[in-house]
Amino acid sequence: MNKFKENLVGWAFISPWVIGFLIFTAFPFLQSIYLSFTRYDIISAPQWVGLANYRMLLFEDELFWKSAAVTIRYAIISVPLLVVAGVALAILLNNEVKGIAIYRTIFYLPSIVPTVASSVVFLWILNPTTGLVNNVLRTMGIQGPAWLNDPTWAFYSLIMMSVWHVGGSMVIYLAGLKDIPAYLYEAATIDGARPWQKLRHVTIPMMTPVIFFNLVMGVIGAFQYFTQAYVMTPNGGPQDSTLFYSLYLFRRAWKYLDMGYASAMAWVLFLVIVVMTAAVFRTQKKWVHYGG
């Protein structure tokens, strides 16, 4: 095949993606920059308002800051918690004991339960009087809180639910553990390393690329957290304690038809995600070990 024809065939193969990208990503992406400087309600044409949306959300909108705080707090607590829980569980499940495959299945299953279903189930098990969680606590002599009805605990109810889904990342960590060459452990044993020293100097360093991957995906996901909050606390929870950024953005867009404002919010979110991801990438050199 000559060079020209090869180029043509190559572009022909990727053309579906290129066309889809232009229609459903690139053009909407550019359009939303423009919309963020307008007042727009979908029905009538957008009206240019300059920086008014940005000025309002940064200086006049308390709920913008409130929802940003809820989301950042969620990212700061849930992302590291899930990394630690996921790695710990994977290490535990990497042992060769009888029935380990059954254990792995049990811990993995919650992560494939559809989000809407697990949200409905958690609403029920967190019921303050007849719920499973408070009944278990009652057996241990503890009076459980009102969970989703309580301004302090509603947020932690959602954290708890995210930990319940830890199986999804556990599987990735487990695959990472399986990739650690056995000779590293043999060498450590010969050097007289104790189990916790092997963990500290072999397992954890070798796992850092996988941890890094999960950290990046976790941060990106946490900032877009929506469905669980929408299903469980459609109004943002008691005292807006679970008014996540995306939930507030959705309310602005579809309840108030404030599409220009919502676009400005989306752009702020996008920039924050870019900055956060870049920040995580910058720390990479300090702690991520590639190719043992």
Partner: peptide, 15 residues
């Protein structure tokens, strides 16, 4: 594009 939050394109795509 995988890292692009859906919220950014949501409104123009809807329109």
């Amino acid at each position: 594009t995988m890292a692009l939050p859906g919220q950014v394109t949501m409104i123009p795509v809807f329109a």
